[in-house]
Amino acid sequence: MTQSTTSLSSPSPPSTAHAIDDERLQLLRCMLADRDWTHDPVLRSRLQQAIAALGAPTAIPMDEATWTLIADETAGYLDFRRLRNLEAQLRGCPRDALHFTRADWEVLRVTEAALEHQLRHVRDRSYAPEPVPLFRIH
């Protein structure tokens, strides 16, 4: 029983946990610094407060709504970066030379979803017409 208590009370290596937190904080800071990924002022303020809370030496617990907001925004931002890089490659220009905004990302998300729907439709159904029943004249 002493072994399990000892293993539960021993903290994880601080360098690993700190590195993960640094990566997440870096992503949030990068997201807020990106001029093409715009937020409304209220959302931006909540994200800045979350960064301050996460970066504080003493952890301030955040509510579930804030964690959900962070998760949704970072997932959207990572997808935005993926599509921005893809668009720059397709246009043959450096990413920094491409003017690609959050509005452009939203349009491309809808377009990408429509393409996925079309591909699923083609995969599940056939374009070939139904066979015509045999017609005979007596």
Rank of each mutant, 00 (worst) to 15 (best):
R81F: 03
R120Q: 15
L108W: 13
C93Q: 14
P133R: 10
T66P: 00
L8F: 14
D124F: 10
L47F: 08
A71R: 15
L86M: 09
R123P: 02
H39A: 11
C30K: 07
E87P: 02
L86H: 06
L86A: 10
E130A: 13
T111A: 06
D40R: 11
R29H: 04
S10Q: 13
F100G: 08
M62K: 01
R81M: 13
P14G: 00
L69H: 04
A113G: 05
D104P: 02
R120N: 10
A17C: 05
R24W: 09
S126W: 03
L47Q: 04
V42E: 05
A113H: 11
H121T: 08
P57Y: 03
P129E: 04
M31D: 08
A75E: 15
I20C: 01
T58R: 00
R46C: 11
D22A: 11
L69F: 13
V132W: 15
R29F: 06
V107R: 10
F80M: 08
I70L: 12
L54S: 03
A128S: 13
L90K: 02
T6W: 12
A65H: 14
R84I: 08
R102G: 08
L78N: 11
Q26A: 10
A114L: 10
L108R: 07
T38H: 04
E130W: 11
V107G: 10
L32I: 14
T111D: 15
